[in-house]
Amino acid sequence: MQYIIYCDESVKNGEYYSNFYGGALVRSIHLQEVKTILENKISELNINGEVKWQKVTANYLEKYKSLVDAVFDLVKQDKIKIRIMFTHNAFIPVGLTKEQRDNEYFLLYYQFFKHAFGLKYSNTTGEPISIYPFFDQLPDTKEKNQKFKDYIFNLQYQDFFKDANLFIHSKDDIAEAVSHHHIILQCLDLILGSMEFRLNEKHKAKPKGQRNRGKRTIAKEKLYKYINAHIREIYPHFNIGESTGKQDDVENLWKHPYRHWKFAPGNRVENKQYVSKHKKMGPAIPT
Rank of each mutant, 00 (worst) to 15 (best):
M1Y: 04
K12W: 03
Y17Q: 12
S28K: 08
S28R: 11
S28H: 11
H30R: 05
T36W: 03
I37A: 05
E44A: 08
E44W: 02
L45K: 08
V51D: 05
K52W: 00
Q54K: 14
K63W: 01
D69Q: 00
A70L: 04
D73Y: 04
L74A: 09
K76Q: 10
K79F: 00
R83A: 04
M85T: 11
F86T: 03
F86G: 05
A90E: 13
E104A: 12
E104N: 11
L108C: 05
F112V: 04
F113C: 08
F117K: 10
L119W: 07
Y121C: 03
G126W: 01
I129C: 08
P133A: 04
P133H: 06
F134V: 10
F135V: 07
F135A: 09
F148R: 01
D150N: 14
N154S: 13
F160H: 14
D163R: 15
D163T: 12
F167P: 02
S170I: 00
D172V: 09
V178T: 15
H180A: 14
H180K: 15
I184Y: 04
D189R: 10
I191C: 13
G193F: 03
R198D: 07
R198F: 10
K204Q: 08
A205K: 11
G209S: 04
Q210D: 01
R211E: 08
R213M: 03
G214R: 00
K215Y: 08
A219G: 07
K225M: 12
K225L: 15
I227G: 01
A229R: 05
I231R: 05
E233F: 00
I234T: 06
N239F: 02
K246R: 15
K246V: 15
Q247V: 08
E251F: 03
L253H: 11
H256E: 09
A264P: 00
R268W: 09
S276Y: 14
K279N: 15
M281W: 14
G282M: 09
I285W: 10
I285F: 09
T287D: 14
